[in-house]
Design a binder for these strands. Structure first.
Length: 259
DNA sequence: ATGGTGGCCTTGCCA
């Protein structure tokens, strides 16, 4: 079972790249973030032609998350089931594919430390942890995939000194990220590459960041401990950041073999 | 060189 996540930064603008990537990598499940697309505009039929069922939680101009699957797409839900008011943004969608509970998540950016949006980000991460506690079990096959907008360690950014006082690396954000892992999820790329630095999933469009290797590792595949045991390989396809009209994020893709 | 890009549509805001 091949599972992937990709923040496409507008599915409308990225559709040719997404179709090309899906055709070549043939994932069983692809989690997409930042569709920036209204619900009625989602190209379900184009994905159906490629062999995928699809579900989308969209709002239009911003955010928007989707799951494509070749291996079933059941028990779909949007947002959090935690007894609190609905999240106003379309930032997470859940489905069960081949017996694996999957989430495609786009965590708020935060904008600036101390900004209202930063507090919303911390609250959002806390709600994700609560949702998992209330609705799931860490012994099941489950994976949260997506753009977390958090770099958990200093080596997950190109130069920590450039991030003094910045979002994505602040202690409250990192603590909130590790609170989610502490429920029973594994940073699977870090697990496979415990000694690596310079493995990134995002490079800003500005400043020629990609060519200068000024990246950040902020997109993750986070399986439960038992599911992580079934992982065979995980890679970042940084080739997807090259060429014509790339997203500013690269896909992360992992293979799992369930006995 | 004190800005750089890209995407959306609210031609400013967001990342």
């Amino acid at each position: 079972m091949r599972i992937a996540t990709w923040n496409v930064n507008s599915l409308k603008a990225r559709m040719p790249r997404v179709v090309d990537w899906v055709t070549r990598f043939n994932p069983s499940v692809l989690c997409i973030q930042e569709t920036k697309m209204a619900s009625d505009a989602f190209p379900h039929s184009d994905f159906e032609e490629l062999g995928y069922e699809s579900v989308h939680n969209g709002e239009g101009r911003w955010n928007g998350v989707a799951i494509l699957s070749k291996v079933g797409l059941d028990d779909v839900s949007h947002g959090f089931n935690d007894g609190k008011p609905d999240d106003p943004d379309a930032r997470i969608i859940w489905a069960t594919c081949n017996g694996v509970r999957i989430a495609s998540a786009y965590i708020p950016n935060g904008r600036e430390v101390g900004h209202d949006h930063y507090h919303y980000k911390l609250e959002w991460l806390s709600r994700l942890r609560s949702h998992l506690e209330l609705n799931n079990d860490p012994s099941e096959n489950l994976a949260v995939l997506g753009d977390f907008n958090v770099a958990p360690e200093d080596r997950d950014v190109w130069d920590i000194k450039s991030f003094n006082g910045a979002t994505h690396v602040s202690k409250p954000e990192r603590d909130a990220f590790y609170e989610i892992l502490d429920w029973g999820l594994v940073d699977s790329l870090r697990y496979q590459c415990p000694g690596e630095a310079g493995v990134y999933t995002f490079w800003d469009y500005r400043q020629g960041s990609f060519y200068k290797k000024m990246g950040m590792r902020i997109d993750f595949i986070l399986p439960t401990v038992p599911m992580n045991e079934a992982m065979e390989i995980i890679v970042v396809d940084r080739n997807a950041r090259k060429g014509e009209k790339p997203s500013d994020h690269a896909p992360v893709v992992a293979d799992f073999s369930f006995s």
